[in-house]
């Protein structure tokens, strides 16, 4: 293993570490909630190993426990997962020239968390950057499965960590990722409109709040950057 490979592996792991820790309450909840709702240990772990999508898993566990129809479960999974289309589109030009053996694992671990580390101009474009991304992505995968396992084994012994307000950890890590990225008016407008629209739609119980807020905010940011571009030309 070369020095640059080792460095990329370590940097990927360390950059993702705060996010791996921030999802502890959710990982444990995924494990314990499934067990409480009659899933076997194998099924519960398989869900984290194969589906690997926290919000989709938690919602599906509730739906399955409520004897919801298969079609509804799958449709809901699709709605919650539809934000991944945006991620794929956004990183497509960076990843698409890489062979399948890199693109396949990258897409498997392309979570919200990994996407947050994907804006660098050269992200995914060099071997070192790919190793960095896979190290970050798979360290998140491994820890997510570890937290699920803890939830399976010790879920009944632990208090419900999500009621302690530990969900704030996710907010704090995302704040740390978003705020430094605000470098111009367009991005500031994106962030403000996204927060307002998401909060209003979610509090109204609108199912598509996440995607709707993201698209509205992206449109706002895009329009402002176009207008500013035109003003600078004139």
């Amino acid at each position: 293993m070369t020095l640059s490979t080792k460095r990329a592996l370590l940097k990927g792991f360390l950059d993702m570490l705060p996010l791996c820790l921030a999802v502890i309450p959710w990982g444990i909840l995924c494990g314990s909630l499934a067990i409480q709702n009659g899933f076997t240990a194998v099924e519960t772990q398989a869900m984290s190993l194969l589906v690997f999508a926290g919000s989709a898993q938690l919602v599906a566990i509730e739906l399955i426990a409520g004897n919801t129809s298969l079609l509804t479960i799958l449709f809901t999974t699709f709605i919650i997962s539809s934000r991944h289309f945006l991620y794929g589109l956004a990183v497509r030009h960076k990843v698409i020239d890489q062979p399948m053996r890199w693109r396949l694992p990258v897409s498997f671990v392309l979570t919200d968390e990994l996407f947050a580390f994907s804006h660098h101009r050269k992200a995914y474009r060099t071997k070192t950057r790919l190793i960095y991304a896979l190290s970050a992505g798979f360290s998140f995968y491994i820890t997510w499965n570890l937290w699920t396992l803890i939830g399976i084994v010790a879920g009944s012994l632990l208090p419900d960590l999500t009621n302690l307000g530990l969900d704030f950890a996710i907010a704090a890590t995302f704040i740390a990722l978003v705020i430094p990225a605000i470098k111009n008016l367009a991005t500031l407008a994106t962030v403000v409109s996204s927060g307002v629209v998401a909060s209003v739609l979610k509090s109204q119980g609108f199912e598509l709040w996440l995607v709707a807020a993201a698209l509205t905010a992206m449109t706002t940011g895009y329009l402002i950057s176009r207008i500013r571009g035109k003003l600078e030309h004139n």
């Binding site: 934000r83 945006l86 991620y87 589109l89 956004a90 919200d112 996407f115 947050a116 994907s118 804006h119 995302f174 990722l177 978003v178 990225a181 605000i182 367009a186 991005t187 994106t190 962030v191 996204s194 927060g195 998401a198 996440l210 807020a213 993201a214 698209l215 905010a217 992206m218 940011g221 895009y222």
Partner: peptide, 8 residues
């Protein structure tokens, strides 16, 4: 703008 939008 997708990353700041979705994460926010």
């Amino acid at each position: 703008f997708s990353a700041p939008a979705v994460l926010t």
